[in-house]
């Protein structure tokens, strides 16, 4: 059972040291490849698709959160993704101009509408300042998983 429908323990990066948009996207996608959600063969194309979407307009939605994503893609069979946390923050051309600390990467295949539900649920959770504060303060991956599991159960 995936956390929030797209994350697994293996795709949670508690401390990314990426300092640019391209680097964080690459790192997040590589994490999904290692966990088996994206094949090695498709890695480059997925990275490019996510970056393409960012070039059309940043998914940095303000408050230190970004939602890089690709939907309706043939490059994956099942919805998957990764979470990355940067203490220093990454410049991401976010709507409020602030650096991004929390990244939720979502990769959704053609033929499902998982994406919409995941996004809505994530937004409901993230508008709660406690959720963001707990994620920022969590000490390691286990702690982050705990925060997500506990808070996700409260939001439909």
């Amino acid at each position: 059972m995936k956390l929030l429908g797209f994350l697994t323990r293996e795709t949670i990066l508690a401390d990314t040291t990426a300092t640019t948009r391209d680097d964080i996207v690459r790192e997040l996608v590589e994490t999904v490849v290692e966990a088996g959600g994206v094949t090695e063969k498709n890695k480059g194309q997925v990275i490019e698709a996510v970056l393409d979407r960012e070039r059309q307009g940043s998914t940095g939605i303000g408050g230190g959160i970004a939602l890089p994503h690709v939907k309706e893609t043939d490059l994956v069979k099942e919805t998957c993704g990764a979470f990355g946390r940067s203490d220093a923050g990454v410049p991401y051309s976010a709507i409020d101009g602030a650096p991004v600390h929390l990244f939720f990467l979502i990769i959704a295949p053609k033929g499902t509408d998982d994406y919409k539900g995941i996004l809505t649920r994530l937004a409901k959770l993230s508008r709660d300042d406690h959720f963001i504060r707990f994620l920022r303060d969590a000490k390691d991956t286990e702690d982050i998983v705990g925060v997500i599991e506990e808070m996700a159960s409260e939001v439909s």
Binding site: I61, T120, R127
Partner: peptide, 12 residues
Amino acid sequence: KSVLEMISLGAE
């Protein structure tokens, strides 16, 4: 003015 709040409406 909040992207997050508008997404949370789940408006289809």
